[in-house]
Design a protein around this nucleic acid. Sequence first.
DNA 1: TCCGCATCCAAGCGTCGCTTATGCTCGAAC
DNA 2: GTTCGAGCATAAGCGACGCTTGGATGCGGA
Lengths: 299, 299
Amino acid sequence: MIEARHLRVLRAVAATGSFSAAARELGCTQPAVSQQMKALEGSAGTPLLIRTGREMRLTQAGEVLVRHAAGILAGLTAAEEEVAAIAGLRAGRVRLVSFPSGSSTLVPTALAALRAAHPGTRVSLVEAEPPRSVEMLREGDCDIALAFRYGSGHAAGEWDDLVVRPLLADRLVGLVPEGHPLADAGSVGIAELAGDAWIAGCPRCRRQLVDVCEEAGFAPRIDFATDDYPAVVGLVGAGLGVAVLPELAIESVRPKGARTVAVEPAVEREIVALTLPDLAQVPAVAATLDELTRAAARA
Amino acid sequence: MIEARHLRVLRAVAATGSFSAAARELGCTQPAVSQQMKALEGSAGTPLLIRTGREMRLTQAGEVLVRHAAGILAGLTAAEEEVAAIAGLRAGRVRLVSFPSGSSTLVPTALAALRAAHPGTRVSLVEAEPPRSVEMLREGDCDIALAFRYGSGHAAGEWDDLVVRPLLADRLVGLVPEGHPLADAGSVGIAELAGDAWIAGCPRCRRQLVDVCEEAGFAPRIDFATDDYPAVVGLVGAGLGVAVLPELAIESVRPKGARTVAVEPAVEREIVALTLPDLAQVPAVAATLDELTRAAARA
DNA sequence: TCCGCATCCAAGCGTCGCTTATGCTCGAAC
DNA sequence: GTTCGAGCATAAGCGACGCTTGGATGCGGA
């Protein structure tokens, strides 16, 4: 097995024509060079250098090795540089999966900051709801999954094998049509909306809604359910019902004909970024996580 | 510094998807693979593998390294094979320098045998007399020099720094024209030719002739001198004088009009093959030396 | 003939890398 | 639910490798 280290020394010897000069160039002692060349000749099975008096010449086999050394060492340094570029955030790719309301608020902010700090890193964004996004993460189809969970109702240990980076707590707010009796109330109890028609969000949010209402002593009459939050806002604005939905989800929606009210008891969902333990050590992934955290802090 | 050995292991891990399987393939233990991968990740500065449950996947940096590993390892094995071909006499080149009478007798026999035994080795042949041939050897312009020396008259230690492979002892024979009084003598003393005209050979042989004659008590009258031995034979055959010359030199010459006689005292020149100590270890050079020795033994 | 330069050689020592042995986790089968 | 097998990580021990230091040798130039 020829070692690349030996080829590097051989090249230096061939270039300088002397063991001592090669040692100076390589920053080691002359016996080290001498020993490495002896070792290389041993693994080559034939002499590579002929020491005739003062000068040092290559044998045919030595010339062959020096010729190959150029390509091999070039390949090695190219590999090192490419890896160093990834490690140093001058290159690299992160595959991010986010739920819809996250990808319209947190993600753009974080990616803009990431682009400014490390222009070489590329981020691809795909939208998926949990648990699909977590599944993708476990299967290696993405590097970071933005997900959310409600304080209650999520199985403990669900993400125990993952790195969970909390980003922010997203409060649920009520949304009622203008003209609704409670439209101008600063805060409403959830039970006060027991008689209204409801418009629910995504399946997990709908389940959460049902749980909260049940605790308040009633079962909501759900007339519509859609995971398209702008559509929810539109339905409420059209007077078709009331809704509770995450603050983040309506941040980028103009609530035309609808009014937001605080609801009691206060309910929050926790928005987190998930990744695999090993991926958290990857520089580009870590940097993206940091920018997501920073974007959440600014929100 | 990324080591080729690590890349080989990484490639095996990527191919098999498991440390244990890679260890089996590489013929070592699983902890060895584990440690090598940890070392490689250390020198790369970023994770290369993600261990998620059962399966093992590559990170982007890992993919980069595996991609480069193909070229680097291919280059290494190509270099190893080419050197092994030289070491194993399936390739290689020997530059041979010979004096003229050697190149017409010993050399063809040896090279034919070498070609038969190792068809891959190529030999180039150039003619030069010593000391020019020895000079070429020292300057790296050839690998083997065929030379000769007389038992007396050569400086001791002249070739002390060289490898001297004795090939054969070449006896000097006398050559007289047909019709010469001694043409039918089985053996003649050199002094009996004191009154004849002489035809000398190459400068060194001429010097040797003068020395021998001086010891016999006379100075030869040299009418012609040429290093072209067939010409010497021709001159003697034309009755222009007598000569002593190496047996080998006339072996391939038809002595037309001349007769060979043994001379007393017997004089021999020693034909040797010279090479540099390091070159003697080169397989193709060593094989050529061996074939020269064998050819000399058959002569 | 002396001196400088370069290589080789031997000894000492630190480090590296492999192996063996052990613990742990995960996934599958019963 | 429990057991079993496979695979990875870690620690200890040990052998070998490779570097450095110091000295000897040899060649070439002044």
